[in-house]
Amino acid sequence: MSTLHVALQILSDLVLAAGVLFVLTGAAGLHRLPEFFMRTHAASITDSAGAGLIVLGLLLRTEEFPTALRLVLIAFFLMFTSPTASHALAQAALGDGFRPQGIRGRKTS
């Protein structure tokens, strides 16, 4: 095993650890925060930083091109779909009369 290989492995481990930390932070927030809009905020940490770092960590230990391509595609599509889903969700909740805490508004349903 070359030095570069070992270095990449260690780097990959570090990046993966950071990614999982973000995912866990987001999940804890999703579970603990008191209100829907705050939870959206926590969940998007998982989708952006968590997913991005984990995919990067896996990329660092990939050797074949097709695998790397798939990882990049997964990251690419997650980067598009997750924020869109969060956005549509938050907008729907707003349209339904939910308001973020601290902002006065009607709460119809």
Binding site: A27, G50, L89, A93
Partner: peptide, 16 residues
């Protein structure tokens, strides 16, 4: 909405 958010987030975690 909380449930949809949770399921969506669960899906991302499944991908990972």
């Amino acid at each position: 909405y909380d449930r949809i958010l949770a399921v969506n987030s669960f899906g991302t975690k499944t991908v990972l």
